[in-house]
Amino acid sequence: MRLALLALVSIGLMWADHRHQHLQEFRSTVAMLVYPVQAGVNLPVQAGAWVLEQLRSHQTLVEDNRRLREEHLHLNALMLRFEALEEENARLRELLDTSVRLRDPLMAAEIMAVDLDPFRQQLVINRGRVHGAYPGQPLINAQGVVGQVLESHPLHSIVLLISDPSHALPVLVNRTGLRTLAVGTGNPQLLELRYIPPAEDIEPGDIISTSGLGGRFPADYPVAQVTRVERIPGESFARVEARPLARLDRSREVLLLRPVNGNGDATERPAEIEAEAPAAESTPEDRP
């Protein structure tokens, strides 16, 4: 009797959770009940990292410091040129009467040492609604795009990696400007590029980056490197594989992006591109 009632409640819950997004509040409440356990599991890992840091010898610290200083100097020198280029770019864009692109603010987050369903590519990070994380927020690290926030709870968030089979990311090939879709495969080392006609110019080694077309990810963040192109005679699309640039299975620090809206990418750029050709998803054969 009780069982039947609870079964009905479960089915109702699943249906509501799957079809609609009304359960966010309830989900967060349950998630907060579990959070202490997850934080507890994460604690020894964090403590271990802290102890290791304390035990680092003076010698290594000095060396690290010197190396980082050099790197900093190097990067600063590069940034000098970058800033000049950015200003030039803004000026040219103004001349062309298109939107000016702003730099996106970042928020650092740490990946918690907590496992989720082994058959889905998800992570837990230690930033939640309190810190300003919201569902759909893009995540990057120093190498490239990592994923996006799936659910944001008060103190932590669940992240969907770009390698999850349910994740598709609108991208373009840097070298040729060819637009395509990077779809996850469930393997953190492998993405599939969809809807590329066999005649297209794409080669192993090409870097692909976000196109900004989905409206969620800002444009021009590097995503992956093409590893294999297979053109099968008789098939309408080539089979193209790519390896994510961000080491999805071993990075620990990530950055949450907060795309600049208003006159930024997310709203203006898609319209500007659509003037030339429709979106990548709908007409794969379009050619820039």
């Binding site: 069982l3 609870l6 079964a7 409640v9 479960s10 089915i11 109702g12 819950l13 699943m14 959770d17 799957h18 359960l23 309830f26 989900r27 349950v30 998630a31 009940l33 579990v34 356990v37 997850q38 989720l116 369903d117 889905r120 998800q122 799936l150 659910e151 669940i158």
Partner: peptide, 22 residues
Amino acid sequence: LGLLLDAATGALLGQHALGFAL
């Protein structure tokens, strides 16, 4: 408990709850 497991593993709410009740 099943509901807690759902929240902990990022599954659909009620998915494990149903099985656990059974």
